[in-house]
Simulated scan of single mutants.
Amino acid sequence: MAHPLVTPRPGPEPEPLDPRTAPAPRYGTASLADLLPALTAPHAVPGVAATGLELPGADRNCVFLVDGMGWELLRAHPDEAPFLTSLLATSLGGSGEPLTAGFPATTATSLASVGTGLPSGAHGLAGYSVAVPGERRLMNQLRWQPYTDPHLWQPYPTVFELAQAAGIESCQVSSPTFEHTPLTRVALSGGTFLGRLTGEERMDLAAERLAAADRSLVYTYYSELDGMGHRYGVDSDAWRGQLMTVDRLAQRLAEQLPPRSALYITADHGMVDVAAEDRIDFDEDWELRAGVALLGGEARARHVYAVPGAAADVLAVWREVLGDRMWVAGRDEAIAAGWFGPYVDERVHGRIGDVVAVAATDDIAVTASHNEPGESSMVGLHGSLHPAEQLVPLLEVRT
């Protein structure tokens, strides 16, 4: 039976999607978690796990991460990003292929994967918001609310810390706003943090710091593209204008690279615009709410936490209602499918929803208008395993 808040599709009623068919991130060979381990591999940094991603060695490595610049979005806008477009063939060491962000494709998770070299099942930032095990509350891992001890929540060292200890001068060049945040502490700390307000200042300082030592590892970040996508959508002039700015910044940095350097330009996730008629409001939907204690994650990658004893019923209802446009899996199914990586730490297991519902198409979102008014008003969304959100570039410039 069609759900009253889902637009019926012509023809016979579709079968639910099998979560085992979802395209799991390519952990170990081509995910964001593999990037820093690949860059530090030629330097044999103690404590950094080996990865199957192979990149040419360089004495000086710089990562420029653009929040929200998905692979498909970049390829669709060559006029706005001529410099970045010219680098597409250099992706993944010349193969012309993208990386996968990891699951979920969201900022807190991806930044932790970049910084620690670990998938979300290990570092534990397994969603935009997740349940605190043993407590009936959600923790927002981007805003870090309510506060939780960062190093109990994410105990592993970052690659920056390990590289610094091995004699590689490491630093992060970003907005001053992020210097003392818990997310920075658990995901990107190590070496020196240098705050600069403008993108131009960050590019210039990143190049300067790259040249300051014989061996260096520099990370710099730009968030405004993502903000325009959330506010106005990726089909907006505001978003396209920001992409033009990103293109100029990337070229500015590339033109200042010192000798023996490699610059890698990547992103934490892509984004899709979801129309109002394709959004289902959990807070107004009695059927989806039945048996649910907490709704975590975000609109295209939901963690659903059931009241005790109701997990099987919640899974059945979510599959019936949403299963033709979302991969809907029980916790153990999602873990076995490799969505969170090849293994999940015991401390992370309870942070994953009893049910995990992930958008499989670009025309579905589960919002929560009362409990998440800000997030529900966003035009551009992300989080899922859909290629538009999951695939991110890895563009290379070498000197």
Rank of each mutant, 00 (worst) to 15 (best):
387 P>G: 10
23 P>R: 13
19 P>D: 11
107 T>G: 06
293 A>T: 10
112 A>V: 04
129 S>T: 14
37 P>I: 06
34 D>Y: 06
244 M>D: 08
394 L>W: 03
55 L>V: 13
19 P>V: 09
302 R>A: 03
285 D>R: 02
206 A>V: 06
339 W>A: 07
29 T>N: 01
165 A>I: 00
284 E>I: 00
200 E>Q: 13
160 F>Q: 00
65 L>M: 15
79 D>R: 14
246 V>R: 02
130 V>L: 01
143 R>Y: 11
160 F>D: 00
247 D>C: 01
33 A>Y: 05
51 T>Q: 07
201 E>C: 00
210 L>F: 04
70 G>C: 10
130 V>G: 02
328 V>W: 03
268 D>G: 01
114 V>G: 01
300 R>A: 11
206 A>M: 08
198 T>W: 00
19 P>E: 12
29 T>V: 14
221 Y>K: 00
316 A>E: 15
228 M>L: 07
207 A>Q: 09
329 A>V: 12
393 P>A: 11
280 I>Y: 06
294 L>T: 12
94 G>D: 02
100 T>F: 09
312 A>H: 10
39 L>V: 14
84 L>H: 06
243 L>M: 14
307 V>T: 15
224 E>A: 14
336 A>G: 08
38 A>T: 15
360 A>P: 01
230 H>N: 14
230 H>W: 08
240 R>K: 13
154 Q>P: 03
318 W>T: 04
121 G>N: 07
309 G>S: 11
25 P>M: 11
90 T>P: 02
8 P>I: 10
395 L>G: 09
106 T>H: 00
181 T>D: 05
357 A>L: 07
69 M>N: 05
173 V>Y: 02
227 G>R: 05
83 F>T: 06
129 S>A: 12
397 V>K: 08
86 S>D: 06
119 P>H: 06
185 R>G: 12
260 R>D: 15
222 Y>P: 00
38 A>I: 10
99 L>Y: 05
165 A>M: 01
242 Q>I: 00
367 T>K: 05
330 G>L: 11
279 R>T: 08
13 E>H: 08
151 H>W: 09
235 D>N: 14
203 M>D: 02
98 P>F: 04
220 T>H: 05
153 W>H: 04
